[in-house]
């Protein structure tokens, strides 16, 4: 491979190359490669997927197939603070939808959206394995449990700058 086929900065290209090499450019490690790549870039845009495909020597369609199959991977950038509301059964029966509604009206975005200033993004996920704390949400991996809709404002205030 001589160089990137798509528009991407030299440093980003080298970073992806380095990640792929750390997994011996093994296509069987595609999911691990994508985890590392998403950790670095925050999301997996087309250009990045093309470079990953070239490095691992597989069609970009296969990379895209995997990216679009798994909900953990995203092609859109998330907010600086990524909020995930758990909609597992335990959270659902304890009123997770009300928490989600409170977040939506507070942030004025819907599921999968990002606030205009890029600060918060809102997603739902299925079970974080903290059913005893239901209903639960996480912000950049930090868990907030036993929520009631009134907590939402206070919690978001923690992230005021």
């Amino acid at each position: 491979m001589v160089g990137p086929k798509v528009k991407i900065s030299e440093s980003n290209f080298l970073k992806i190359k380095e990640i792929c090499e750390s997994f011996d450019n093994n296509p069987g490690e595609l999911i691990n490669v994508l985890h590392k790549t998403q950790e670095h870039f925050g999301f997996l845009p087309e250009e990045v997927q093309q470079v990953v495909a070239d490095c691992l020597g597989i069609p970009v369609g296969r990379v895209y197939g995997v990216v679009s199959f798994y909900s953990f991977f995203t092609m859109k950038p998330k907010g600086k603070y990524a909020i995930s509301v758990c909609l597992g059964t335990a959270c659902y029966v304890k009123g997770a939808e009300k928490i989600l509604d409170a977040l939506k009206s507070e942030l004025k975005i819907s599921e999968g959206g990002v606030t205009d200033d890029g600060k918060f993004s809102l997603d739902v996920l299925r079970c974080v394995g903290a059913c005893g704390l239901a209903p639960v949400m996480t912000i950049n991996g930090k868990t907030y449990g036993r929520l009631v809709p009134e907590h939402v404002k206070e919690i978001l205030a923690e992230y005021a700058e």
Binding site: E29, L30, I31, Y70
Partner: peptide
């Protein structure tokens, strides 16, 4: 270790194996 990436169907053993091979978990 092999990591999942958020797909419930990967609890099914054949899907799990495909996912571990770096493929879609079908």
């Amino acid at each position: 270790l092999r990591y999942g990436a958020g797909a419930f169907v990967c609890g099914e053993e054949t899907a799990l194996i495909h996912s571990m091979e770096g493929k879609r978990g079908e």
